[in-house]
Amino acid sequence: MTKATAKSPWVVHVNCNSCNGCDIEFLACLTPMYDAERFGVVHIGSPKHADIMVVTGSVNHRNARVLRNLYEQMPGPKVVVAMGICPATGGIFADCYNVLGGVDKVIPVDVYVPGCPPRPEAMLDGILEGAAILAQKQQNTPTVKPVMKLKIVKPAPAPAPAEAPAAAGATGEQAVAK
């Protein structure tokens, strides 16, 4: 079952006021060029069927509730991938009055994929990393409460806006921009 879980990550894509750059790039992952489906990735519309939640955009006060609702509706084991720099730290919007600055302020994040937007290879890599974590969680779920031992990387506590990409790049170990 663990193996199957790793091979079949279904992805739901949530846009929390992103500039659409990451969204377009993410959808491009499904094209013949990159073909995410060869890893079993299905881009699914409903959080109730999804394993991995891909969040783009810096979260603001208004859609934090939406994000939390969607996260709650995903059946566990589940993984959140923050796609791009905005969901990691707030990116260039970090200083805006309405921006919370990071998905991890609302829900626990497992993988950060920095970049503005990240390269498709990085995105694929991030999702596969997420799938590995998913399998890990799957092994633990039935009896033990999910302990996220691996790959939990908190970003720098309060990054300065200018250094944000750099800070995330330094800490986010999954960012393997090829």
């Binding site: 949530v14 959080p47 609702n69 709650e72």
Partner: peptide, 12 residues
């Protein structure tokens, strides 16, 4: 028990 999917705009 979860509430139905309403694009995340559902009440909690």
């Amino acid at each position: 028990i979860r509430l139905p999917y309403l694009c995340g705009e559902n009440i909690t």
